[in-house]
Simulated scan of single mutants.
Amino acid sequence: MSVWSRIVEMAARAFDPEAEPPEFNEECAPRPNDVGFTAAVIGLAAKMAKADGEATDAELRAAAQVFRPPLGEEEHFRRAFSLAKQTVLGFDSYAKQIGRKYRARPCLLEDVLDGLFHIALADGYVGEAELKYLAEVAHHFGFSEMEFRRIKATNLGPDAGDPYAILGLLPGATMEEVRHAWRRAAAENHPDRMTQRGAPPEFVEIAREKTAAINAAYAKIREELSVDAK
């Protein structure tokens, strides 16, 4: 029996909320034949695709790009994905078990999240339900809210209202980097510079608003970082 056909058997239990999640091998990193790990991640991926109410063919193709089933095993992969996507129930069991097993390997867990984001983006848009699902998976993986903001920003781009985005940074930047970015942005957008260049009053007012937003972003990040340091 091939690895993928065994995964199909395990995925058949993925939509049963009473079923136990698959057991992992004891290695600290997944191997190509680590059926339990692969089945659990496929379960997460398929359930994520279902999170917005409809798992599309585009998401299936994106999942195939992530998992790369070998030639001749494509149908088994489609079958496993189809079985697992029937409901989002039970996803937290998969996420918790992966998180417990690989907590010491955050790069591996981030790779899994990157793959989930890739699948979520397959239809060109990541909805609120999908973002909520991804945030919950990240939580079960042991990532902080700040770490999830960084991972989200690297996959989707930063939110326009995020204080880090206002300063041209990604979440996770050091206080020194934040301070340097704030000083640069404040200097470039200072109203006095606009006045010196002979800009019209409307432009000067825009500069004042931008400066206020830059200062507010800096204050917000300083507050966040001081809380995290306690």
Rank of each mutant, 00 (worst) to 15 (best):
S2P: 06
E9A: 09
E9F: 01
R13K: 15
D16W: 03
P17T: 05
A19R: 07
P21M: 06
P22H: 07
P22T: 09
F24T: 05
N25M: 11
N25A: 10
E26Q: 05
C28P: 14
N33W: 02
G36E: 02
T38K: 06
A39V: 01
V41E: 03
I42D: 05
G43K: 08
L44F: 08
L44I: 06
A46L: 00
A49W: 06
K50W: 02
G53E: 09
G53V: 01
E54L: 15
E59F: 04
R61N: 09
R61F: 14
A63N: 02
P70Y: 00
E75L: 08
H76M: 06
R78H: 06
R78D: 06
R78E: 12
R78Y: 05
A80Y: 08
F81K: 09
S82H: 14
S82D: 13
L83P: 13
K85C: 03
V88F: 01
V88H: 04
G90Y: 09
F91V: 04
S93P: 02
K96M: 12
Y102P: 11
R103N: 04
A104T: 05
A104K: 10
P106Q: 02
P106T: 00
C107V: 12
C107W: 13
L108R: 09
L108W: 13
D111M: 04
G115F: 00
I119A: 00
A120I: 07
A122P: 05
D123E: 15
V126G: 10
E128C: 02
A129V: 02
K132W: 11
K132M: 09
L134A: 05
A135F: 10
V137C: 11
H139M: 08
F141M: 13
G142L: 14
F143S: 07
F143Y: 12
S144H: 14
E147M: 04
R149L: 02
R150G: 00
K152L: 04
K152H: 08
T154D: 00
G157W: 02
D159S: 12
G161P: 00
G161Q: 13
D162Y: 03
A165N: 14
G168R: 11
L170I: 13
L170N: 07
P171T: 04
M175N: 11
E176I: 10
E176P: 01
V178A: 05
V178S: 05
A181E: 03
A185K: 14
P191I: 05
P191H: 01
P191E: 04
D192N: 10
Q196K: 11
Q196I: 01
Q196W: 02
G198K: 08
G198V: 00
E202I: 10
E202Y: 09
F203D: 15
V204S: 00
I206E: 15
R208C: 07
T211V: 03
A212K: 15
N215M: 15
A219P: 14
A219L: 10
I221N: 14
E223L: 10
E224H: 12
L225K: 13
V227F: 10
A229V: 08
